[in-house]
Amino acid sequence: MKLHPLTSLAIAGSAAVVTTAAASVPLSLAVMATAAALSFMSGRGAQVLAASAMILVPLCLALFMVHGLFFPEGTTVIAQWGPARVTIEGLTFAAERASRIGAAVVPLLVFSCTVSVPDLVAALSARGVSGRVAFVLAATLALVPAIGQQQLRIRQAQEARGLVIRRHLPSRIAAFRLQALPLVLSLVEEASGRAQALEARGFVSAARPTSYRQVQDPLPQRILRWLVLLCAAVVVGLRLSSSLPGGNW
């Protein structure tokens, strides 16, 4: 079954919300594993894994460094070097946070790596207010590879003008300036041309735009979407009510 972009967004977002609310390590691990499995089934496993590792590895390192070594509230000390104390409580806290964040990050990355961006843009544009958000999303995603190519052209042009990038800092700063300025100037200039084109093509004043690209949105998926979101809302509600005065944080 092909998922509508908003359905997969709702599922990924709800997974992130529910695991945050539940704050249970086993559930978080299960969600991460499921998301990873789904990404491998869709053939994007490697991409999702790489993206997750890039975000989660430094984050986990920081968490274990901060809480694993310095947790004044901890009482069960395993090891101690000068001011640094490794405590059970600190390690538990770090592990709990790391798994919770992982369980929010991985499903969302599975969504971004598997969704068809044009479909997402079409689905968002069809919903009124978000037309401009969809434009910004699509334009940003289109700009990233284009900027890469432009950056390469600019570097070649500057090298041909005598730019030599050496390892020391002043040379790097100078090289950065030589490349960043032409890049930003041309981007700003291009943007002002595009602004006029968008106005002329009626984007800015569009009242009720239609969509050329048709994205299938069958009824069962719409129901599923609402159910998933409702479920997430209920879990959040339960968690918040249990934590109100008298509850346990």
């Binding site: 044009p118 041309g193 006029q196 084109a197 735009p209 239609t210 969509s211 690209r213």
Partner: peptide, 21 residues
Amino acid sequence: TVLSMVRATVGEELAFGLENR
């Protein structure tokens, strides 16, 4: 510059102005 650059195909790009109308 005329192109919106947010449409995935030539057909959609052509239709962009019509969509907005």
